[in-house]
C-alpha cells in the first residue's frame, strides 16, 4: 500500500513538471498551430536564472522565491522576442516553424554553453525543502516534490482564472475558437498571439525553476523533457486546458509505475506504445474543440 502510494506520488510530481511545460505548448499550439521546439530552452533559461539569482543573493530560500517571477519574465520575454522576430512570419507553415525553432534551440544551447560552460551546474535547495514530510504511517513525501506540486497547482489555478475571468483571457479564448471572427470583432489578434507566447514561455521558465530542485542544470536539459511534453499535448488535445492536466498526470503515473515494475527503457517504450494505441481510439486527443473544419 505504501509502495503504491509513494509511486503514485512520484508519478504525480513527474506529471506536475510535465504539465507546466505542456501548458505553454498547448496554449501556443492551440492558438497559433505552431510547434515551438525552443520551448525546452526557455526551461533552461528559467533554470539558469535561478542559478544566477542564487549566486547573487546567496540565500537559497529567498533566491528561489525571487526566481519564480523573474524566470517567468525572462523566459516570457524570450518567447515574445522569438514570436516577434521569427514565428509570426511563419504562421502559414507550421511544420517549417518546427524546424526553424529547432535551429533557435541549437543557437540558445550553444549560447548557454559559451556563457555558463558546458558542464552542468547545480543550485543548493533551501533547507526546508531537503527533508521529507510524513503523511501517514510509513508514507513520506519529499519536500521538494511537495513544493513543486504546490507551485504547479498555483500556476494552473492562476492560468485558469486568467483565461476564464479576465478580459485578455476572454480574448485569448476567442482567438483559439475562431481567429477570423475574433479579428472582425475587434480583437487585436497579433497582440493576443504575443501575449499568449509570453504566458506560455513564462510557464516554461517556472518549470525551469522547479527542475533546479530535482537535478542539475545544463545546456541540453530541455531537449529530452520537451518531447514528453509534446506527447502530452498530442494526447491531451488542444483548446482545452483540462486535456493537458489529466494527460500529464496520467503519463507521469504510467511512466513511474512501469518504470518501478520494469526499467526506465521499457517504460519509455511502453508509454510510446500506449500513446499510439490511444490515438487509434481518439486521434484528435482526449479533449478537443469541436469544429466543422476538415483539417
Amino acid at each position: 500500500m505504501t509502495v503504491v502510494a509513494s509511486q503514485l506520488f512520484t508519478g504525480i510530481s513527474i506529471g506536475a513538471v510535465l504539465l507546466l511545460i505542456a501548458l505553454g505548448l498547448a496554449l501556443t499550439f492551440g492558438q497559433m498551430g505552431v510547434i515551438n521546439m525552443a520551448h525546452g530552452e526557455f526551461i533552461m533559461a528559467g533554470a539558469y536564472t535561478t542559478f544566477v539569482l542564487q549566486s547573487a543573493i546567496t540565500d537559497a530560500g529567498v533566491s528561489l522565491l525571487v526566481a519564480i517571477p523573474v524566470a517567468f519574465a525572462v523566459a516570457g520575454a524570450m518567447g515574445v522576442l522569438l514570436e516577434f522576430l521569427l514565428i509570426r512570419r511563419l504562421y502559414a507553415r507550421p511544420l517549417d516553424t518546427l524546424l526553424v525553432t529547432w535551429g533557435v534551440s541549437l543557437l540558445l544551447q550553444q549560447l548557454a554553453r559559451d556563457i555558463f560552460g558546458a558542464p552542468n551546474v547545480q543550485t543548493r535547495a533551501p533547507e526546508v525543502l531537503t527533508g521529507n514530510t510524513r503523511i501517514a504511517g510509513d508514507l513520506t513525501m519529499a519536500n521538494n516534490r511537495l513544493f513543486i506540486l504546490g507551485l504547479v497547482v498555483l500556476a494552473v489555478a492562476a492560468l485558469t482564472v486568467a483565461l476564464r475571468l479576465t478580459s485578455f483571457g476572454r480574448r485569448i479564448r476567442a482567438v483559439v475558437q475562431n481567429r477570423d471572427l475574433a479579428a472582425v470583432s475587434g480583437v487585436p489578434t497579433a497582440r493576443i498571439d504575443r501575449l499568449t507566447f509570453f504566458i506560455g514561455s513564462g510557464l516554461a521558465g517556472i518549470a525551469g525553476v522547479a527542475l533546479t530542485l530535482l537535478g542539475p542544470i545544463g545546456p541540453t536539459m530541455g531537449t529530452n523533457i520537451i518531447i514528453d511534453a509534446f506527447l502530452v499535448v498530442v494526447v491531451g488535445g488542444i483548446g482545452h486546458l483540462r486535456g493537458s492536466v489529466i494527460v500529464a498526470f496520467v503519463l507521469g503515473v504510467l511512466q513511474s509505475s512501469v518504470e518501478y515494475l520494469t526499467t526506465l527503457s521499457v517504460a519509455k517504450v511502453a508509454v510510446f506504445v500506449a500513446i499510439v494505441a490511444f490515438l487509434q481510439w481518439r486521434p484528435q486527443g482526449a479533449f478537443t474543440l469541436r469544429t466543422r473544419s476538415l483539417a
Binding site: F29, P94, I227, V233, L264, V269, L279
Partner: peptide
C-alpha cells in the same frame, strides 16, 4: 497513424518520440 488521420505536426512529434524511445531502449 495515417489510418486515423493523425498528421502534420502530430506525426512529426510521434516520429521524434519514436527516436527517443529507441535510443533509451538501446542504452538500457
Amino acid at each position: 497513424i495515417f489510418r486515423r488521420r493523425v498528421r502534420g505536426a502530430y506525426f512529426a512529434i510521434l516520429s521524434q518520440a519514436l527516436a527517443a524511445a529507441m535510443v533509451i531502449l538501446l542504452i538500457g
